[in-house]
Structures are given as C-alpha cells and as structure tokens.
Nucleic acid binder design. Structure first.
Lengths: 228, 228
DNA sequence: ATTATAAGTGAACATCCGTTCGTCGTCAAA
DNA sequence: TTTGACGACGAACGGATGTTCACTTATAAT
C-alpha cells in the first residue's frame, strides 16, 4: 500500500474508471468486471484495466479481492458527484439470538458438553455473527487465559461455536488433541489422513496430526472481544 | 406465480439467503456467488440456490441479471420480523443499535473522519458490545491486512470505536503516531508526559512516546471477528 | 394409494473473468 | 545513446461461476 492521493492527481483514465464504477454500482447493485470497465473507458486490454485498478488501490480509492469476479469496492468518496440515490441502504431489522454462554474454554480439557452445565448465562448476538446458518446448536464459551493467543484470541474473548464433529478445509475449529491433552482453536486443513492445524497468527507454526488424533468439537462461527 | 410476498411467508432457507446476502454486501461491497450462498446456508447444490434465488425474485425481494456473476441485488427492505418466528430467536430486550461501518483501518494513515467517506454500510450490534455506554458516536471500521496482529486483530475483523481524543489508563485506543506515520490499536497508559502503548499480545513490546506524539482518535469498544 | 407439485441433488457444460506473460512505444534521466 | 519506468497491447490459461438436465425425495391434495 502506497501513499493515498488526491482525486485530481489521477490520470484521466483512472478518473473515468472510478466514475464509471460508481455509476455502475449504483445502477446494478454490484461492481463491473474488468472487461466491462475496459469497454466503457476505451481500454482494449484487460491487463491494462487490471494495471490501473491496482494503481487505484495504491492511491487509496479502491479495495480489491484476489481472484474474485467483480471483487472491488470504492472506499473513498469521489468529489463533485451528487449521489442522491447512492445510499439505498436496505435495512433488515433482524431478531437477536440468545446464545447460551457455557463455562470457560481452557487448554487442559475438552469442550464442555451441552447438558453438564446449568449456567443460565447467555448473551445476545445478531445473526450476522452466526454466519446465518442454522443457529439452534450454537453456543458460546468465554476464553480463560492466554493459551489461544496464537489463534488471535485473548483472555476474556467470547467464542461462538456450533457443535459439530467434522470440518471443511479452511474452517476454524475447536479440536481436542488427545495426544497433547489440550483443546485448541485452529484453522483446519485435511491432507489425506494427515490434518494440518494452522494458527490464525502466521507467526506460529502449524501442527500436523493424524486424523485419529484430532477430535473436532465444533466450528468457530465468530469471536467477540467485548467492551471492558 | 409472481406475486410479492411477505418476508415471513418465505422458507427458512430463503430468509437465511436474504440475510446472508445483505451482510455479505455490507462486508465485501459486492454480492456473493451462487456457490457462496449455498455454502453459507447449507445448500449442497448450486441449482437449488439458483432455484431459490428465482423464488426470491418472484417474491419481490431480489432482482437478478442473467448470466452475470454476482448479478443480483436486494430491492426490498424487510418488515420487522415478529416474535412468532420459531426457534430460539427472541426480540431484543434492549434496542439493537445500528452502527455505521466506515471504510477500513490501514496502518499507513489516520482514521478516516466522518465526512470524507460515504458511509452507507452499517451493521447491527447489541448494546452488550458497546459496553452499554452512550452509543451516539460509535462507529465501526473493517480492518484490512495483518498490521494489527500485535493487537490480536486479524484481517477482516470489525472494530467498534467511539470517537474521542483522550483516554484513560487501560483503555484500548486507536492512536495516530505522526512520527511513525501509522495508526495502531494499543492499550493506553499515561505516565506523566510519557505515554506507554501496550500491545494486547504480550509477546510484543510496548511503544513509548511523548504525549505530543500520540494522537488518540478513538476508544475501542469491542472487536468482532465475523463468521466467514 | 395415487398423483401432482414443490424442493432438492449431483453432475456436466459453456462461458465468464481475473491473471499472467511477452512485447511494444513513449518519455525523461543518466 | 542508453537505460529504466510507465502505460499499453493482445493472447493464452485456468479457475470461477451461472445454467441446465435427468433424477430423486418430500409434501400435500385427491
């Protein structure tokens, strides 16, 4: 990321691209493709559009998602444009979900099971934080201690999980490692019979275990670090 | 059969799809793909997603563009969902708060100020996450990149802040460090004229700066790592 | 029970679309 | 003149993505 620039310091092409993108999003509700941008601004090559899009990222006007169709969004207002109809924010008023807050997650033992807790503690969350999946078996745990720090989870954080015993690649899961006698939160990647458990913090090294030595206890839906 | 319907007459899947789409757009700035919708809502076949998307078009909630990736947009706000919606969902005991979601935090520049961003996105949070303080000037930022990793904050996390220029000992604050030309999130401790900025991750060392070289931009109320 | 309709599945397909690479022209600095 | 940075071109590649179809399952009406 380089230094942000002013709109006027951009090339004519780049200005046109920005304006076109803003109009396109307003009109369609989703961003244009590289080829559409090129067509609209008189650029014959997709790579040139790509090149200038990256320039706009450097200039601080744009954010892109790698290898994602239409994966871009404007992050800075353009000057001198009346966007009267721009903010068509559609607000869903969602119902809250009350999630049971079970005890603590500690490194030295598996997750608690459902019925062994009578703690009536619960917190309210929005469906946004549950990933919009079926939430009937979601629950929450408060993290005690710094043992999850390699998962970027601190003491006092609240982890919202869904009980399940399998996982897909890329899921963050709570796993019980019988060999080590500890519970941990890691990203899950299966490679045949080996399972790689990748910490969220890239400064830590992954753990590799056999499938038999890796009991998935739940999938992490989200993490909350509450106001203190 | 193409008559507009009420939100509650939709199937559970279709409701989940709608809500997922809205949050996805809020988070990414562009709509999801058919496959992403399926993954998020537990639908194994793209054709079923396609099928239900067309149902949502018939019901008047959605517009689609033929053969266009991510070619969809929400065109109808949802009425309040009432409490007879089954499952565990309940009404908020306190009012939900809709917090503006401004652009992004980047290490290389100060927090954006209110009026230089066209903020049209917002997320719903519970008062629990705002620390039950006055929420009129709370706002949210999406974290881009791993530059906040020493604050235990990852790429994609959402930070909820309150605009303020002072801080008390122990607060987590967003500070602009003019000497370094970067914004960072740290715990704030004042020691006379020196200010110690302590990372949330104890493995990182604190920064010490003079009060003049430390511009507090806001206090961090909470951090959300949304479901992905 | 039978039938009709809606909903879901899994696979195949064609195309869309972002990425990459070698090449070229321009312009300013050395 | 040479060099290098910048902008641009066009083609090719491969993965992403919407569409379609034959088939199955679930639900409800007759």
């Amino acid at each position: 990321m380089k230094s942000p620039k002013e709109f006027n310091s951009l090339s004519k092409r780049q200005k046109n691209m920005l304006v076109y993108m803003e109009d396109y999003v307003t009109l369609h509700g989703y961003p244009p493709t590289i080829r559409e941008i090129g067509e609209a601004t008189g650029i014959n090559s997709t790579s040139v559009v790509n090149y200038n899009l990256n320039k706009l990222v450097d200039a601080g006007f744009l954010e892109r998602s790698d290898r994602v169709s239409r994966g871009m969004r404007l992050i800075k207002a353009l000057p001198n444009r009346d966007k009267k109809s721009a903010s068509k924010t559609i607000q869903f008023t969602e119902a809250a979900v009350r999630v049971q807050l079970y005890g603590q997650i500690v490194a030295g033992q598996p997750l608690p099971v459902y019925n062994d807790i009578n703690a009536q503690d619960s917190i309210e969350v929005t469906p946004f934080m549950l990933g919009h999946v079926d939430t009937t078996d979601a629950f929450a745990l408060r993290v005690k201690g710094d043992s999850m720090i390699d998962a970027l989870i601190a003491d006092g954080d609240i982890v919202i999980l869904r009980k399940q015993e399998t996982a897909n690649n890329g899921d963050m899961v709570a796993v019980w490692l019988p060999e080590r006698g500890e519970t941990t939160l890691k990203y899950f990647y299966r490679d045949g019979e080996r399972i790689r458990l990748q910490p969220a913090n890239p400064q830590f090294v992954p753990i590799e275990v056999s499938a038999a030595q890796c009991e998935v206890q739940g999938k992490v839906l989200s993490v909350i670090r509450p106001a203190r």
